[in-house]
């Protein structure tokens, strides 16, 4: 057997791959569910916080800024571990899915709030004044004048950040979540063969490579005009 054959036999073993394919697919579904949940809830919560912040209520804004800073400073894995291993001591035992989702959604919320807020503040003062002078309310100005301009500015940084945080779904494996990496790792220890890990890696590429390429396109399309 040549070295190449041995390499293929070890890392791309057809028998092992066939056996664990269903596991990897199961993990892929979990990863997708988790990713969708994180993106939707994280972005929505981030936008909500940014809108609340634009109302300019001092104590509330300090609280928002603190929460945002907190979840930007803490490593996501630390938050996941804290939720999963810590909360049971306070009488609530979130599942590994809920822990991972909550942690990453909070992190995305924090980053999204920052980006949305920066977008909102980037819309010139004159836009607010012009809109309010025509009789539009605060909410109407925000909705029809400011947000459409702000959102366009936020698309590129938001896309990149969302991808980076969504890739964190792999961290769930640390709290025994049965997502791609978790399924692949346990398959490796059961089969004494790294092929499932290669499959898992492939699954991540299939999921994320198109998103990364799309982000590159978005970045040029919505690039900041310097």
């Amino acid at each position: 057997m040549s070295a190449w054959d041995r390499f293929v036999e070890t890392f791309f073993n057809a028998k092992v791959m066939a056996k664990y394919l269903p596991d990897i697919l199961y993990g892929t579904v979990v990863t997708i569910e988790l990713a969708v949940a994180i993106v939707l809830s994280g972005l929505a919560a981030g936008l909500l916080l940014a809108l609340v912040r634009s109302a300019g209520i001092r104590p509330l804004n300090w609280l928002i800024i603190f929460v945002v800073d907190l979840f930007r400073s803490l490593p996501p894995l630390v938050i996941i571990v804290l939720l999963y291993f810590g909360l049971p001591s306070a009488g609530w035992s979130p599942s590994s899915f809920v822990s991972t989702w909550l942690a990453l959604a909070l992190v995305l919320m924090a980053f999204a709030e920052e980006i949305f807020w920066a977008g909102i503040t980037s819309v010139a003062r004159g836009q607010w004044e012009a809109a309010r002078s025509t009789g539009l309310s605060f909410a109407q100005t925000l909705l029809y004048v400011v947000l459409p301009q702000a959102l366009r500015l936020t698309i590129a940084p938001l896309t990149n950040r969302t991808i980076a945080i969504t890739k964190g779904t792999a961290l769930g494996t640390v709290v025994a979540l049965h997502e791609i990496l978790g399924m692949a790792s346990s398959a490796v220890s059961n089969s004494y063969n790294p092929s499932p890990l290669m499959m898992g890696a492939g699954a991540y590429l299939v999921l994320f490579l198109p998103v990364v390429v799309a982000a590159r396109w978005i970045e040029t399309k919505f690039a900041w005009k310097r």
């Binding site: 890739k167 792999a170 590429l205 994320f208 998103v211 590159r216």
Partner: peptide
């Protein structure tokens, strides 16, 4: 793009 698509933990494992 390859390494940006890869979760760092997956690469590490």
């Amino acid at each position: 793009d390859f390494f940006r698509a890869f979760p760092p933990l997956v690469l590490l494992v």
